[in-house]
Design a protein around this nucleic acid. Structure first.
Length: 311
DNA sequence: GGCCAGGCTAGCA
DNA sequence: TGCTAGCATGGC
């Protein structure tokens, strides 16, 4: 099978260096970094590819080249996948998002304007697919990020085999079938709580059984509220989890996860508050962020990594 | 040593 | 309908 080649020229600003930098941090165990190249395995309609993403431009004149190397075990005619892999990468890398309007939105508030200047062109790199996003989000509930990353890494090592390429092994996020075939005790051995082990496996089994759809095309046809209504009845999936899923899994631009501890801490820092704002206070502070609530939340999360930014 | 982590459920008033 | 203990463990 041949390597697929793609070139993307998103509308500026597009700050790939900062987007790449975020993926070097904790919680991004699926990525490998080779000089200025970002590498990971992705799954597109059941087929696995190793993608090498390289930036050859700058924030004001962005240009990305991507190679996608099909896994040797992929089956079926590869040619049909070219368009699908390309569309997958465009969505994952926020290529077709226009940020016009975001700076204007940020500009009405001095503190937010600071964020806007700092993170101009900083976009989401989405989780590779909705199933992966949901599993990682369930694992991340309530835990500190580093322990959540440890659990995710152990799950990947337990349930799937790495993509071997040029003498190195690249982790592949397990398929729904691979996670569905596990027993809760196997995740308990990895230091999952009993509950969390059940949530993750039950979710995978529902996806395999078809009672829950994680198909991108089907999810794309639904509103945020429809997806919230459908997914929150599942055990282990609450409002926060679906909000994160909509942001990082589907790239929906206008989510405000007002109960999120990280967002509350970031707002406390941004505005110099003497207490951690409540959920209601967060909704009030963010009442004018629409239709960019996800992006402003994203910038606020990022600001947590820079304690000196507002002091 | 104690409390909080980018929550959620079950069980109880 | 609303409140809270418990969850597993790491980090500060």
């Amino acid at each position: 099978m041949r390597t697929l080649q793609f070139q993307f020229e998103p509308e500026p600003p597009y700050d790939f260096a900062r987007m790449h930098g975020r993926l070097r941090g904790v919680g991004h165990e699926l990525y490998r970094h080779d000089e200025n190249t970002l590498i990971r395995a992705i799954r597109v309609q059941g087929q696995v590819y190793l993608v090498l993403i390289r930036s050859e431009g700058e924030t004001a004149s962005p240009k990305l080249t991507v190679e996608a190397i099909p896994h040797p075990h992929n089956s079926g005619p590869n040619a049909e996948c070219l368009a699908e892999v390309g569309a997958h990468l465009r969505r994952m890398l926020s290529i077709d998002i226009s940020l016009a309007g975001l700076q204007e939105k940020l500009g009405v508030d001095d503190r937010l304007a600071l964020l806007g200047r700092r993170y101009e062109g900083f976009r989401f790199i989405l989780e590779s697919d909705p199933f992966e996003c949901m599993v990682k989000t369930i694992i991340g509930q309530q835990l500190n990020l580093s322990f959540a990353a440890t659990l995710t890494r152990r799950l990947i090592e337990k349930a799937s085999s790495p993509f071997e390429y040029k003498g190195a092994g690249y982790p592949v996020f397990p398929s729904p079938e691979q996670i569905a075939s596990l027993q809760p005790e196997q995740l308990r051995e990895l230091q999952f709580s009993v509950r969390k082990a059940e949530y993750v496996i039950d979710f995978a089994r529902q996806v395999v059984a078809g009672t829950v759809s994680m198909k991108p095309a089907e999810l794309a046809a639904k509103t945020n509220e429809q997806i919230l209504t459908e997914l929150t009845p599942l055990r282990g999936i609450g409002r926060w989890t679906v909000e994160c899923f909509l942001m990082f899994g589907l790239g929906r631009p206008d989510l405000l996860p007002a109960a999120d501890i990280g967002l509350r801490n970031a707002l406390r820092q941004l505005y110099g508050l003497d207490h951690q704002p409540t959920e209601a206070e967060v909704r009030d502070l963010g009442r004018d962020w629409s239709p960019w609530s996800s992006y402003i939340t994203y910038y606020l999360w990022e600001s947590l990594n820079e304690k000196t930014l507002f002091t």
